[in-house]
Design a protein around this nucleic acid. Structure first.
Lengths: 155, 155
DNA sequence: TGTACTTATGAAACAAAATTGCAAATAAAC
DNA sequence: GTTTATTTGCAATTTTGTTTCATAAGTACA
């Protein structure tokens, strides 16, 4: 979908706060609220905007721990890779899952209550998984920046 | 802040779609819209809800590439670590930055237009940085799951 | 157990925001 | 330069969010 200058400016605002009133957005970018509304609607329908969500403090929900895992598979058959994707995706504690190039196959980002919970999950996902060759764990001490914001290229 | 059963149910909904009308939420969990509104307001004020954002398709914004970087510093003085945190955070293409334990100091998640842009950024962040000992790059072939959702523990 | 105090609730009134209809303006196609 | 298709702003409408207020539920304590 072709995005013009106005669309980009709208997205720039919504990526920071999607509760911004359309009237305010209109004022800032020089459009009427109605025009803004129609553009947002279109971007939602066409999949430019993929989701609208509240971000919640993970500690408040009892999942203070962020853990990264690099997973290497034994067998990289398409079928087995798809199985791994499905398995990892199905776990609620897996916030993010990426299929990557290189000597590692997957990178996972987990949110968990305690190390003990990670240990349990580890058994299910890795030790109990015949196709996992090895995995490497990184524990986050601090989330310095956490966003899905994409920079807007202005011309 | 103490969250009760209702708060958790609200958060479960808002994490998936924060545009859900409060009346709908109320109907689903058995509260009036007014009660839902007050609870959401309080959770925003107390920082339980840290942000409300639209998530945008990165390809649509010309940043189809997702890259992970493990960064290892030479000197782990507090001052130099803070400098690194600030530097990484300040880069718009750095979506996520974590300070981690182990043989690596930082893990970065980047969103970029092309490999050539990564190469350029690499010079600025790593090669041109006297305190970076080494860094390791992983290129994502597929974003299998990307969310900040935290599981809700129901009793 | 009873009283004072705090807090949360729903219903209704109110305010603010989003959405739609329509005519005018703009841009694109030919 | 005329036609066609899009997009716009304004105003009306509808939906959603917010506040008020009286009531109910829950606490603390004598």
């Amino acid at each position: 979908m072709a995005l013009d200058k106005f669309d980009l400016e709208i997205l720039e605002i919504l990526q920071k706060n999607n509760l911004t009133p359309q009237r305010d957005i209109g004022d800032r970018i020089g459009l009427s609220a109605a025009a803004v509304q129609r553009r947002i609607k279109r971007m939602r329908e066409t999949g430019v905007i993929t989701a609208d969500v509240s971000v919640v403090d993970q500690s408040e929900l009892g999942h203070p721990l962020t853990i990264f895992v690099e997973v290497e598979l034994k067998d990289e058959q398409l079928k087995l890779i798809d199985e791994a994707k499905q398995l990892f995706s199905s776990i609620a504690e897996v916030q993010q899952c990426y299929y990557v190039t290189g000597d590692v196959d997957f990178i996972l980002v987990l949110a968990l209550p305690t190390m003990s919970d990670y240990e349990k999950l580890t058994r299910k996902l890795f030790f109990g998984n015949p196709n996992v060759k090895k995995f490497k764990t990184f524990v986050s001490m601090q989330s310095v920046k956490t966003t899905f914001e994409i920079p807007i290229i202005k011309k």
